[in-house]
């Protein structure tokens, strides 16, 4: 057995954060799950009765819930796909030593520094029905005005959530670019040279030498973007306010808790969100830990 002197100071050092995280993160997660299993549908001191998974079952029977989940799926697919693709292309372009690389990198990264609320408000104007300004004005100016027909983009029942993903792509494509660029730079130049010596074209170098080594970056990007997308709230509210057509689970949860004041129902939506994020994050963490163990 090791002497206390060896492990005690280290433990004492991290103990405060273990306790705080234990209470404020895991404790509250536990409390939320407990709440979601009760019938506490009113605020107030009276505790609820245990009802098992009733709230979860009730939720899936609501068209409103399945609608909001569908909205989120559309948003996530378009946002993830768009940001990854655009970020990847930007990184590819900047990977070549070009003049003013620093400037481009900074410019593409800047939107990330803006809060989703500010982005949302600007894009609400850009996507507004006004045919003289914003995106509609742009389409009109190039003679494609008939295509948009003076519509508010995000209000369209079919394609509204696709439009809603545009500001998110705009905001985070630069971040994906930074991730990929760091990934590209992490691939040793020797390997690329070796490929070129063997007669590979530039495209083949990327396809067969660089890309296979980017898996960690891809994973990081998907996990980070994915969990942001699942929790999306501020962007939606800033663009659409409280609109049914753009309702996603996080907005629905907020309305249940603060408008309707139904803690148990809101908690069951929160649990769904946490589980959805966990499904994304936990495999990544496991994969990450296994990798680290292998490499040490």
């Amino acid at each position: 057995m090791r002497k206390a002197r060896d492990w005690l100071p280290g433990l004492l050092l991290v103990l405060p954060s273990i306790i705080l995280i234990g209470i404020f993160v895991y404790g509250l997660i536990g409390w939320n799950f407990q709440l979601s299993l009760t019938d506490k549908h009113l605020p107030g001191p009276k505790p609820g009765e245990f009802v098992g998974l009733d709230n979860y079952v009730a939720l899936w029977e609501l068209k409103r819930w399945t609608d909001s989940v569908w909205n989120l799926v559309v948003f996530t697919v378009v946002f993830l796909g768009g940001a990854m693709l655009l970020g990847f292309v930007l990184a590819l372009l900047l990977d070549k030593p070009i003049r003013g690389e620093m400037t481009f990198r900074t410019v593409y990264l800047f939107p990330m520094a803006v809060s989703f609320i500010a982005t949302g408000i600007v894009w609400r104007w850009l996507m507004a029905s006004d045919s003289a300004a914003g995106l509609n004005g742009l389409f009109g100016a190039v003679g494609l005005g008939a295509l948009v027909d003076g519509q508010t983009w995000w209000r369209d029942p079919e394609t509204g959530m696709v439009a809603m993903a545009l500001p998110a792509i705009w905001q985070l494509a630069g971040y994906v670019m930074a991730l990929f660029l760091a990934g590209f730079r992490g691939v040793s130049e020797d390997l690329r040279e070796a490929g070129r010596v063997d007669g590979a074209t530039e495209w083949q170098v990327y396809r067969h030498v660089v890309l296979p080594q980017l898996r960690p970056v891809l994973m990081v990007a998907i996990v980070i973007m994915g969990h942001m997308s699942l929790k999306v709230f501020d962007l939606i509210v800033a663009v659409a306010g409280n609109s049914t057509v753009a309702e996603v689970p996080a907005v629905y949860m907020w309305k249940m808790v603060f408008d309707v004041r139904d803690p148990a129902f809101g908690a069951s939506i929160a649990s769904h969100l946490l589980l959805a994020v966990a499904v994304l994050v936990i495999p990544y963490l496991v994969w990450n830990m296994r990798n680290e163990r292998d490499s040490s």
């Binding site: 991730l179 992490g186 960690p216 990081v220 942001m228 929790k231």
Partner: peptide
């Protein structure tokens, strides 16, 4: 290694932002 550190730092920045 430095490259992966950059990825890590960027990832951390994202988490902080989120």
């Amino acid at each position: 290694r430095a490259g992966w550190k950059a990825v890590g730092a960027a990832a951390l920045a994202g988490v902080l932002m989120a």
